[in-house]
Amino acid sequence: MRRGSFLTLCLWAGFAFLYLPILVLIVYSFNASRLVAVWGGWSVKWYGELFRDPQVLGAASMSLQIAAISATVAVVIGGLAGYALSRFGRFRGRTGFSTMLTAPLVMPEVITGLSLLMLFIAMEQIVGWPAGRGMTTVIIAHITFAAAYVAVVVRSRVAGLDRALEEAAMDLGARPFTVLRRITLPMLMPGLLSGWLLAFTLSLDDLVIASFVTGPGATTLPMLIFSKVRLGVSPDINALATLIVAVVASGVLLSGWIMLRTERRHARQVRAAFRREGAMDGN
């Protein structure tokens, strides 16, 4: 089919477009030369440089802490919001609620960052908290926009769940809290998990908002990368990028492999069950 092959061509051209820059970064991370245009032979010296740089290590650990904390809180807030949107039907203020959850997804970061900074300054003047800016304010900012993303993930997951399961548990005498703990949360777990991962990545990735709301002593990894990149070519950034890609890719491959294995096992069990049934019908 001509149309089919045209589409396939588009698809693979698109993938080439998406992955070419990443591949180039990986290759150049092993370039001994400092210059992009010159291939100076294979080397891993930029990796060594990366690990010896206390600034990079400090910023990385700061970013990881911020990401872990904000992702966890964002899952709670975004999870509640997603659940409410999907299951509470109509309630007073629903439109405003839904808009407040959609807007952070697309709000230009410069606006979000600036407005949060203005809030923090005003709050400090009025209630005396947060005193100064730093890790705490960055975490609050990240929770806010990450919660909106978590809400999207959880909302679609909840919409795909059979309401009758919760009702059945209720019917069998489970109290609301028990239903939440034994039925709803376990069923939502995959959605919450991917929401957490998404929030974690978003937090790790954010430069603009953090630049506005951070204070002295709290430099995140993207801020450090940005300052290095702005000064010109820095091969250790290539090494860092390669490490990030490696971690993400192995994470994805691992989860994909686990998913594939469970899926195959399920398919096998289903087939076996059908065979048994068929054998019984035959008798």
Binding site: P21, I225, V229, I244
Partner: peptide
């Protein structure tokens, strides 16, 4: 899922 900043830099 990989750094946005680094991809733009690439």
């Amino acid at each position: 899922w990989t750094s946005f900043l680094i991809r733009v830099y690439a």
